[in-house]
Amino acid sequence: MQHLCSHLDGLEEMTSADLRFSVELLIDTGRRPDEIAKLWLDCLERDQDGKPVLIYDNHKTNRKGRRLPIPEATAAVIVAQQERVRARYPDTPASQLRLFPSTSRNPAGNRPVSDDWITDRHRRWVTSLPDIHVPTMVQEGGTQVTKMLPFDKAKIFPYAYRHSYAQRHADAGVDVTVLKGLMDHRQITTTERYYRVGEHRRREAVERVVVMQFDRHGNRVWRQAKALLDSEHLRRAVGEVAVPYGGCSEPSNVAAGGQDCPLRFRCVGCGHFSTDISYLPDLEHYLADLLRHRERLAAALDADEWAKTEAVPSDEEIRRIRRLVDRMKGDLNDLSEEERAQIEEAIAIVRRGRGKIVGLGLPRVRQPLPDLRPERTA
Score class of each variant (00 low, 15 high):
Tyr161Ala: 02
Asp9Gly: 15
Leu291Ile: 14
Arg223Gln: 11
Gln259Tyr: 07
Asp47Pro: 03
Met1Trp: 08
Leu234Ser: 00
Asn58Tyr: 08
Leu54Lys: 02
Ala255Thr: 02
Val176Ile: 15
Ala300Pro: 01
Leu68Met: 08
Leu287Ile: 01
Pro33Ser: 08
Glu337Pro: 03
Leu332Met: 13
Ala205Phe: 03
Gly50Asp: 09
His185Phe: 08
Tyr89Thr: 00
Val350Thr: 03
Gly269Asn: 14
Ile27Asn: 02
Ala288Met: 11
Gly246Trp: 02
Val221Asn: 07
Ile277Val: 15
Gly30Met: 11
Met137Tyr: 14
Asp260Pro: 00
Asp57Glu: 10
Glu295Gln: 15
Arg32Ile: 02
Glu344Ser: 05
Thr74His: 04
Trp117Asn: 03
Thr143Pro: 04
Tyr161Glu: 07
Arg31Cys: 13
Val254Tyr: 05
Pro368His: 07
Asp152Ser: 13
Met212Pro: 00
Gly271Ser: 12
Val350Ala: 06
Ala346Ile: 03
Gly141Gln: 10
His163Ile: 05
Arg322Ile: 08
Ala378Trp: 11
Gln224Met: 06
Val254Lys: 01
Arg31Tyr: 05
Ala154Gln: 15
His133Phe: 15
Leu229His: 07
Leu283Gly: 01
Ile70Ser: 04
Trp117Phe: 10
Asp120Cys: 09
Gly361Ser: 10
Arg84Trp: 07
Leu229Ala: 13
Pro262Leu: 14
Ser102Glu: 06
Thr146Glu: 02
Tyr165Phe: 15
Ser164Trp: 12
Ala205Asp: 04
Gln224Trp: 04
Ala94Thr: 13
Thr74Arg: 03
Val210Gln: 00
Phe151Ser: 12
Ser278Asn: 03
Pro112His: 07
